[in-house]
Write a protein that binds this DNA or RNA. Structure first.
Length: 574
RNA sequence: CGGAGCGUAGCGCAGCUUGGUAGCGCGCCUGCUUUGGGAGCAGGAUGUCGCAGGUUCGAAUCCUGUCGCUCCGACCA
């Protein structure tokens, strides 16, 4: 492609609304433009990157035995009513009516549609297993879209669905997809980690998320420093606490703690470590009040709590409810004398002597024993794992890191096949429900995550497999007919080498071309100018690392191939 | 959903407090010069100041409403 004919509107400045680096660079490199909140248009360069990712995803899906389909974006409500999700799914599901007044929605995911399709087609165990996938635009009306392509409302997703005769078959499909995902992200040249994820209310037996490691990630990963255990913090199991101090405290005392509402305030005021203070969190669980206790230095994990108590809904109480249930304004809640159910984290068993709110304005209690002075209905693992906790597998310390979720594999089991009655006849003529799995890759998010991971002060540093163009050939002297002829010749040569080449044939000053080439992040740059031409060389620069070498124009192809090999092998993506 | 902020040229912004000819930088167009890391000079084009009302002789500026966008929070007990 010639730059002059490929629309690449690069920008010197980032738009004011771009917060994260990937968003800024995507806009500056002329890859995307915003239409409205969380909705972006892909310009030629952006689409090329998306298509690069999609191509690799397609290859690996086909290798894993999945077959491509394309399902409708607009879906009838009936199907969602049938699965129960018309009620269950929140505001993220964009609903509307057609001209006849029929309820419709824009597909945020396609379990209903694919299950409907398959139940109409598959009748016999002989037709199973089957895996379908599609690459398609999804719409989720997120509460707060942000970070450009990282959390858009409209985004491009590869979603796959497997249908099996039985659990074993479903496990095989799951494994095949898990392995395909490992290959996909490896081939894309990303630093990633597959982590155990919450399978929650859906009740599947297991689920893994594929996380691209990046500081800007919205997810926290707990990962063992010694073994290969890794899990989303939502799920990461915390081993039950050991008792460090079993001595019963002296009598409980009230302490006047005016305006000391946060754990930090209180622990500083009482001169106690936050780990000696009980944090009491009031929630509404399935419409009823509930108090959850964790150590002051820990964080409540609402997903674990929800799973532990098998709750459908869980939300934090508002200040009126807190006052109503505890008899004190916010900041002074505690377990003593509460008449609502109290769930405590396992760590609160480690000692007997605690400080806590007294359920009385400006008052806390010290020397509080949960067994003596309060009533705890149940203990359990309801807190977030934190660095220093012991690995549930090998008991070495875990560490925490941030990740961007780019893939999720999920064993669904019978949830949708039962709800929508997707059944087949087995070899004994017995009707059985198909065992399902679903598998997603956020294709557009992968591009953003890739940039988060690969950039420098000059712009994007694309790994070769994702780069819209693998190589930019910069002609610095387009007005010189000799050099232009040479550039054209090299361009044709590089194309015949099977490369995606962008020839910068614009009438721009060299500085502009260098800046733009860096910005759009092509892994390889070849620079042809009058100086080098006179010497019979052109300059080759690897975008990553910036290392420059001169390649001879005489015998160029061989020298180039060798250089290219070195650039690619540095990426580990030959 | 709660809180905060912003809508002025394609992009980034000033002007608004104290009402009186709509500005700056980048980009864009023309010409000359320049040409290996976002050129210089000269000339030029581009705005319903988000929209709708209101106040006023007069509104980008003040008031009301509305729409859009962004950020923060929703882990606080």
């Amino acid at each position: 492609m010639r730059w002059s004919t490929c629309y690449i509107p690069t920008l010197k400045e980032a738009p004011a609304d771009a917060e994260v680096i990937s968003h800024q660079l995507l806009v500056r490199a002329g890859m995307i433009r915003k239409l409205t909140t969380g909705v972006y248009s892909y310009l030629p360069l952006g689409l090329r990157a998306v298509n690069k990712v999609a191509a690799i995803v397609r290859e690996e899906m086909e290798l894993a035995g999945a077959r491509e389909v394309l399902l409708p974006a607009v879906q009838p409500a009936d199907l969602w009513v049938e699965s129960g999700r018309w009620e269950q799914y929140g505001k993220e599901l964009l609903r509307f009516k057609d001209r006849h007044g029929r309820d419709c929605c824009l597909g945020p995911t396609h379990e209903e549609v694919i299950t409907d399709l398959v139940r109409g087609e598959v009748r016999s165990y002989r037709q199973l297993p089957v895996i379908f996938y599609q690459i398609q635009t999804k719409f989720r009306d997120e509460i707060r879209p942000r970070f450009g392509l990282m959390r858009g409302r409209e985004f491009i997703m590869k979603d796959a669905y497997s249908f099996d005769r039985d659990e074993d078959g479903a496990d095989n499909s799951y494994r095949a997809m898990y392995e395909a995902y490992q290959r996909i992200f490896k081939r894309l040249g990303m630093r990633f980690k597959a982590v155990e994820a919450d399978s929650g209310a859906i009740g599947g037996s297991f689920s893994h998320e594929f996380m691209v490691l990046a500081q800007t990630g919205e997810d926290t990963i707990i990962s063992c420093s010694a073994c290969d255990y890794a899990a989303n913090v939502e799920r990461a199991e915390v081993l039950a606490a050991e008792r460090v101090d079993a001595a019963p405290p002296p009598d409980m005392e009230e302490v006047f703690t005016p305006a000391q509402q946060t754990i930090e305030d209180v622990s500083a005021f009482l001169n106690l470590s936050p780990s000696r203070v009980v944090k009491t969190i009031l929630l509404e669980a399935d419409g009823k009040p509930l108090a959850a206790l964790v150590r002051g230095d820990h964080q409540l994990n609402e997903i674990k709590l929800k799973n532990l108590l098998k709750l459908d809904t869980l939300r934090l109480a508002n200040s009126e409810e807190i006052e109503d249930w505890t008899g004190a304004p916010t900041g002074f809640a505690g377990p003593v004398g509460l008449s609502i159910p109290v769930i405590a984290d396992n760590s609160l068993r480690e000692r007997e002597n605690w400080a806590a709110g007294a359920n009385k304005k400006d008052t806390h209690v010290i020397n509080m024993s949960l067994s003596r002075d309060a009533r705890v209905s149940r203990y359990g693992d309801i807190r977030n794992s934190a660095p220093g906790d012991l690995c549930p597998r090998c008991r070495k310390a875990v560490e925490s890191m941030r990740g961007i979720e780019v893939g999720h594999v999920f064993k669904l089991g019978l949830k949708y096949s039962q709800a929508l009655n997707a059944a087949f006849l087995d070899e004994n003529g017995v009707e059985r429900h198909m065992v399902m799995g679903c598998y997603g890759v956020g294709v557009s998010r992968v591009v953003a995550a890739c940039i988060e991971q690969n950039h420098d002060e000059n712009g994007i540093v694309f790994p070769p497999p994702v780069a819209p163009f693998e190589l930019v050939l910069l002609n610095l002297d387009v007005k010189d007919p000799q050099i232009r002829a040479k550039a054209d010749e090299l361009y044709a040569l590089l194309l015949s080498e099977g490369l995606d080449v962008l020839l910068d044939d614009r009438e721009e000053r060299p500085g502009v071309k260098f800046k733009d080439a860096d910005l759009i992040g092509a892994p390889m740059q070849l620079v042809l100018g009058a100086k080098g031409f006179a010497k019979g060389v052109l300059e080759a620069k690897a975008r990553r690392g910036g290392h420059k070498v001169e390649l001879p124009l005489e015998g160029f192809v061989e020298a180039f191939r060798e250089w290219k090999r070195s650039v690619y092998s540095a990426w580990g993506t030959a």
